[in-house]
Design a protein around this nucleic acid. Sequence first.
RNA 1: GGGCGCAUAGCUCAGUUGGUUAGAGCGCAUGUAUCACACACAUGAGGUCCGGGGUUCGAGUCCCUGUGCGCCCACCA
Length: 887
Amino acid sequence: MRNGPHTMSIDKTYDPAATEARLYSKWEDSGAFACDPTSKVDPYCIMIPPPNVTGSLHMGHGLTFTIQDTLIRFARMRGRDTLWQPGTDHAGIATQMVVERELAKEGLDRRTMGREKFLEKVWQWKAESGGTITKQLRRLGASLDWPRERFTLDPALNRAVNKVFVQLYNEKLIYKDKRLVNWDPKMLSAISDLEVESKEIKGNLWYFHYPIDGSDEMITVATTRPETMLGDTAVAVHPENGKLKHLIGKMVRLPLTDRLIPVVGDEYADPEKGTGAVKITPAHDFNDFEVGKRHNLEMINIFDKHAILNENTPEKYRGMERFEARKQIIADMESLGLLEKIEPHVHAVPHGDRSGVPIEPWLSEQWYCDAKTLAAPALKAVEEGHTKFVPEQWTNTYYAWMRNIEPWCISRQLWWGHQIPAWYGPDGQVFVAHDEEEANAMAQKAYGKATPLTRDEDVLDTWFSSALWPFSTLGWPEQTPELERYYPTDVLVTGFDIIFFWVARMMMMGLHFMGDVPFRTVYMHALVRDAKGQKMSKTKGNVMDPLDIIGAYGCDALRFTLCTLSTPGRDIKLAPARIESSRNFATKLWNAARYCQMNECVWQADFNPASVKQTINKWIIGETVDAVNKVASQLDAYRFDLSSHSVYEFVWNVFCDWYLEFTKPILSGTDEAAKAETRATTAWVLGQMLKMMHPFMPYITEELWEHVVGDGTMLITTRWPSYDTGLATKEAQNEMNWVVRVITAIRGVRAELNVPASAKIETLVKGASDQTQKRLATHGALIERLARLSAIGETATTPANVAQTIIDETTFILPLEGVIDIAQEKERLAKECAKWAEEIKKVEAKLANPSFVDRAPEDVVEEHKERLENARAMVAKLGEAQKSLAA
RNA sequence: GGGCGCAUAGCUCAGUUGGUUAGAGCGCAUGUAUCACACACAUGAGGUCCGGGGUUCGAGUCCCUGUGCGCCCACCA
C-alpha cells in the first residue's frame, strides 16, 4: 500500500522543538538554501541587513528576517534561483564600546593596551560571540545561503572599501576638511549628523551684560551655554535692528577675558529672539561658524577632545570640565554684576546616539564624502521608478533627505573598523592608495626617494562599508558570476529607522560603482512594540525575546503572528494572545492532517484535479485554486497580513470547518468510487495547503509533507502550485454555498430555540424547486449529519406550531410542536421579518430616486431590483410562517 | 518651524477602482465530552466607521477642515 516515511503515523501532538532542530539541519545539509550561479532560471536575491556581529536576536530581527525568509521561500518554490545573502556587520562604535566595557571589568583600558593588542581582543570577542546571532537566525528557520556568509571586515570587503575610497578620493568626492564636526567627548570621535539625537532639555537662558569698550553702555546677550563665552569673538546684531544697529563697529570688552571683540551686523541675529544681540562663538556653534566665516572672525577653540577647557581660556578655568566651567562662569559673572537674569528655557540639545552625552561642535580635521554629488543619481533613480518603496510614502522621506543632504563625515577616531587608506609623508603630504605598497611607490615618486610614511589612524564610519554590501558581498571589484547574476537585487527588507543610514547610502554607492540601483524594491516594515504599543526596552522590562517565544509556542507560531500583524503603515503590537492563536492554528493544521491519515487519504502523485466527479471535491479544488492564487498575489504585493489571513481562512474556515465535515458521510459510506476520489482529493488539497503555508510556517508544513507525501521530496524545494483557473466552477461553488446556508440556518434555529445539540430532529421541506430537490438528493445525508437531523421529508402544507427557516424559494420546517415556545418563535420570525422590511425600505427608496436609476450603472440598478424582489419574497414567506404559528 | 502616518466592535486590526445587511482574531454570552482537533465545535450579542462641512444617484472609502495620538527632519540666543 503506502511506502516511505509517511507510513509512520502522525503523533497526537506536534512537537515544535524536535521538528525545528531536525528539519533545519536537513534543509541546510541538503543544499536547499544554496543559490546556483550557473542556473538558467530567473534569479531572486535578498541581501540580509547585516546584524551586528556581537548582537543577539531581538523581536525587530524576528520580524525582518521572518519577512525575508517568507519572500525567499516563496520565490524558491516558484522556481527562482534564490540567494539570500547572509552576513554580519562589524558595527564600529557599538562593538568597540562593548569590548571596552568587557576590558574595563578586567581593569584594562584600550589606550594602555595599544591599538594592536586591543584589536586582537576585539577579534577574539568576535570569534567567541559572533556565532550567536547566526545560530539564532537558524532557529528562526531563516534559509540563508550560509557558505556565502560575509563579514563587513573580511579582507575581501576591505579591498572593496579601499577601492571605493581611492576612486572617490581621485574623483574629489572624498576630501579632507577642517571644520566643525559633531564631536562626541566620550567616544572621543567625530560622528555624522545622523548619529546625533536631539533631546529636549530643561535648561536656562542666562542673560549676560558685555560692556561696550570706551563707554558706559552695555550690550546684553542671552545664552544657554555660558561656558562658550570664553570663545566668543564677536557679538552680532541684525543690520536693520533699530535699537542695536548703532553698536555695529564698536568693540566689546569680553568679561572674564582681556579680549576686545567687535559688534558685527549679521542677519543671523534675530531681533525677535533673546535680546536681539547674540554672542558669536565660531569654534563651538554651527551657526556661529558661518557668521565667523562671513566676518572673518577669529576662531578660538576652548575645549580639548574631552571637552575640558584648554590653554586658550583664562588660567582659572583651564582643566575644568565643561559643565563645571559653566557653573563657575555664571558665578563669576554674577559677582561682577554682569548677570542680568536667568530664565528657565526648554531647548533641544544634541546627544551622541551611542554615548548618550551632549555632543560638542568642535573644530577638527576630518574626512568627508561629497554626498550631495552622489545623491543626485540616487534621487533620479527613484524618481524614474528604478527603485520603488513599499509602502510608497517612504519615497517622500527619501526625497526630502536626499535633497537636503549635507557632506558626510566618514572618519571616526576609533580603532575597530576599516582603517582609512591614506598615508602621510613627513611634510604632511597625503597618499591615498589601495595598500601600503602602492602608497610607498607614490611617495617614492613624489619625494624622489623611499620615504617612511605614517598611516592615517582613523577608521571609516561603519555605514561606509555597509553602503557597499549589495555588491561587495558578491565579490566586487572582481567581475564574478554572482555579481553579474544577482545585482541588482530584487528587494531590500528593512526598518524605516535606517533609511538614511543605510538605504540611501547603498543607493548612492550602488549607482556610482555598479551603474545600477542595488535593489528594485525597498520594503519598509514597521517597528515591533509590546501589546500596549510601547517600545520594547530593557529598562521598561517589556522585552519579548523571540527565542523564548519560539520555545513556548514554536517558531511557526511566532513567524505566522508577525506576518499577520504586518500591516503597512502600522506598528506591530505583539500580544501573547495573538501568538497563542497562531499556535492554535498550527495545531489545527496538525489535527486536520491526522484526520486525513486516519481516513487513509493517500497522496497520489498522478492525481488529476480536473477528473473529479463529486461536487464536494470539485468545490474544494476550486476553492484551493482560488486560495493559492490569492495568497500568491497578496505576497507579490508584500501584504503579509492579508496573505497569511487568506491562508488561515482557507485552512480553518473552508477546509476544516466544511470540507472535512463534508467528507465524513462519504468516507463512512459505501460508495467505493466516491470514497476513493474523496480520499485522493483530500490528500491533494492537504498537499496544496502545505505548499501555500510553507513560506509562513516552514517547519510544521515540512514535517507534515513527510507524512503526507513521503516520497523523499522536501517541501522547501517543491514547486508552488499553478493551475488552470478553470478548475473553479461556479456550479459547484453555488451548490456547496447553498448546502452551507441550509446547515447554518437550521443550526441557528435549533440553537435559538434551545433544541439540545444531541437531539436529532426531522425536517420537512416545502416549495422546493427542481434544483433544490436535486441538491437535496445529492447532499441530504450530509445536511442531516451536519444539521443533526433524523430525516428530511417533504410537505405541501405547513403543519401548525412549527419552526421555519427560509433558504431561497424553499421553506425548511422543523416540526417541533410541544418542544418550542410559540411566543419565542414568533418573536424570532418577527425580528427576521423586520430586518428584511428594513432592507425593502432602503432599496425602494433608492429605486424611487430617478437620478439613481438614471446615473448608476445598469448592473448596480439591476442588482438593487433583485435585492428588492428577494427581500419582498422573504417578507412574504416569513409572514406566512408567522401566520401558521398563530393558527 | 517643515513633513509623514494613524483614528472602524470591549481589545488588536482588515476593508481593493466609491456600490448587497461594514468583516476577522481575541475577549464576552449560551450550549456541546460528536469517532482530527476543548489549542476544539456550534450559536449569538456587540458598530454614531473621531467631529464638522463638501463632491456624488450613492462615502468607512474621495476633497476641505477641526480634534486626538504617534513618528521623522530642523532647532543649543
